[in-house]
Design a protein around this nucleic acid. Sequence first.
DNA 1: TCTCGTTGCCCAAACGTTTGGGCCAAACGT
DNA 2: ACGTTTGGCCCAAACGTTTGGGCAACGAGA
Lengths: 345, 345
Amino acid sequence: MAGPKVRPVTLRSIADQLGLHVSTVSRVLNGPAEDGARAASGDTAERIRSLAAELGYQPDPHGSGLRTGRSRLIGVLVPRVSDLVLATIYEGIDEAAGERGLTTIAANSLDDEANRRARTKTLLARRVDGLIFGDARLDDGFLDRLAADGVRFVLANRRSGHHPSVTPDDRLGGRLAAEHLLGLGHTEVAVIAGLPFASTGADRTAGFVDHYRDHGIHIPDTRVLHSPFDTAGGRAAADELLRSADRPTAIFAVNDFAAIGALGAARDHGLRVGTDIAIMGYNDTPLAAELPIPLTSVAVPMREIGRRSLELLIRLMADEKAESQRLPPTLTPRASTCAAKVTGR
Amino acid sequence: MAGPKVRPVTLRSIADQLGLHVSTVSRVLNGPAEDGARAASGDTAERIRSLAAELGYQPDPHGSGLRTGRSRLIGVLVPRVSDLVLATIYEGIDEAAGERGLTTIAANSLDDEANRRARTKTLLARRVDGLIFGDARLDDGFLDRLAADGVRFVLANRRSGHHPSVTPDDRLGGRLAAEHLLGLGHTEVAVIAGLPFASTGADRTAGFVDHYRDHGIHIPDTRVLHSPFDTAGGRAAADELLRSADRPTAIFAVNDFAAIGALGAARDHGLRVGTDIAIMGYNDTPLAAELPIPLTSVAVPMREIGRRSLELLIRLMADEKAESQRLPPTLTPRASTCAAKVTGR
DNA sequence: TCTCGTTGCCCAAACGTTTGGGCCAAACGT
DNA sequence: ACGTTTGGCCCAAACGTTTGGGCAACGAGA
């Protein structure tokens, strides 16, 4: 029906057909409502709009981008989009962006310095209006320099320094986990703490350790293992923990996938998860509730983190006050820490 | 060091500083090598290039897009990026695109007709040069119309009609699965077949059923259940299968996540997976090997599918011959179908 | 009648790039 | 010495949009 091979439906073509000037058409179609009202009579505006609709006019982003210097493009850098947690956050970002007529461009940094530099550069070359980083590091010189250069960005999921960010309240989440396990009587506990430079892992671990310390229990460093946020990493770390002489009775993994790896390791060691050993995760991935042994996990509003980080970026770009946010987590107990007590969701 | 708040480093600014014409600079920096060679002496070209590098010149995509009508943007529509399979394919696409200086824009269609129309429209409004659909339907009027309108696109993962596509050889994969289960002696088998409009599910199921038929075993329709490609869907379908009077001894799920759901359902029914019942999945997600009960699965080169679909799109856009490709799958047997025989990877 | 304020529209200049063509001088061929 | 080629560069127009200023015409108020 509409536009075939060639789609030269432009402001000019519309203006010509109606015997109007291109600027008039522009103000009516793309300008602010108040501007459009002054630009044409109600009748003219109506003619313009109906012809535009009929022709399927869509403003050319190249034209407007060139003129305004803005692209309505938001760059999103994540460790990898195939990581469920970040993918979900990205979906929240993209959803909120779509509602505002913004388009997002995602890129993988693989948590690698050279990579994130390169990807950020190409994003900037695309003239994105702002950036959202999901791969911040606790001590992040790269972000500091970017900020100094005047690049607008916010952080999602992981915080860093005083850059504006939207994160889960990870210390609280860690405390919730500790409270849960301590409440079940576990005093010999270990943490699979994720990557050391990620605030998520660090804060969750800190909250967990703090809560135990507040109750007079010291968790030794040997019980806190770092690993990638994935299944293989969790399995390896859990394997090491379970091989040790004084094996813990409970393991807190700061990530569901690491926890799933731990589940596998426990099974390899002949342990029944939920009875012989308690294992819990973090993020409450959809998978957690559906596993053969449902996984106790701390839920964080991932999608909401995405949405809010986009909104925060919008405020930042409008030079409004952009304060960091910390969203509260909630713990869902399941069979992996308290067998038979609870089953599914 | 470089570009602060305002970054007016343009062809003109470079040309002015060197006392050259903007077109000369353009040909040297952005034009084809052969064109650039004729545009300036080796010495001049060198001066241009070094100044450009020093200033950190990056061509403005708005300017060039406006002039050339091309955006070097590729739209990618997937059911959802938080689905690991599609996310991995997308990574392949993005990787290959990056190597060619192209940028991808991902969007979720949620396998919903209205949604894909809307998202495709905004992608087109962004003036993407081409599209890759990861959410094709077997009978897809939308794609047919798009093709008729001259929009350039290819399909990834799922095929549809005669539109150019890069898919796994799903019939073969289904046969491999059947061969495996039949080889283990299973004659009472069921299929969790995924969504009926997705070629992946349909072809895998068809291959599976065909292989059994070729060996004289008929799989009744009651043993083929459709469900979403996720854990909850798989669990529900498996639950139904296991509740029936003549419960199957083996279940083939056309997707790993559905298989994980089936794992959970089996456990709920008091069945030991791998001994009481065999369950296998498809895609060989990284998770499959790491599960407490490692999952037999058919691996498909997801990332490669992504890469190739991008390459196919490139050919299509260059008006070259663009033939569909079908990539071979491989089966990896694990404990979920043959307990204890194999364990990890 | 004159002034003033609206209303409704047009004008024109950018934004940064690409690209077909042109032009001058030097080098070359005869 | 004269014509032709080539090297090395410049010219100018166009792509589609936005936006600060216009400028007529008209109605209202004085």
